[in-house]
Amino acid sequence: MLKTVQLTLTSPEETRKFAHTIAPRLAPGDVVLLQGDIGAGKTHFARCLIQFLLEEPEDIPSPTFTLVQTYPTRLGDLWHADLYRLSHPDEVIELGLTDAFSDAICLVEWPDRLGSLIPDSALTIQFSLPDTLSDTLDTRIITMSWGAPRWDNVLEGFTNV
């Protein structure tokens, strides 16, 4: 059964804290799908999470042009992918991403391009802007959803806010 938790983050700084809470709980084999429109904060979240796990500080470029950026982290290899420019799931296999799903921590932006290759074990994080325009510019609604029991442990302590 699918479980969900929804959070409201009112600033990029709160997104950073959220990323830093999740980061140390991850392990190779964890796949996190980042959904949301351009400007919703997917890359900001990924950047904060990766920076937290790097042993030496390093710039985290957007993966939009390179498709995939890989990082050696203290928890193992991490892949940061942006699949926007792909048009067919076969290309995901060619990228080596499906292998990375089992060997590395994977953060995947635009995961709809995966089609049927989306692993059942993945955690989905949806980034949305609030409906009412009166909210501050920086507020984001974060919806996490998962079916695999693995995430019950990782997300322990998170409750709907």
């Binding site: 990766i50 030496e56 500080p57 390093e58 710039d59 985290i60 470029p61 993966p63 042009f65 390179t66 498709l67 995939v68 950026q69 890989t70 990082y71 940061h80 990228l95 080596g96």
Partner: peptide
């Protein structure tokens, strides 16, 4: 300086 790019699958362009 720190690396400008992470280790891109494609790399610097």
């Amino acid at each position: 300086s720190p690396h400008l790019t992470g280790s891109g699958k494609k790399g610097a362009k």
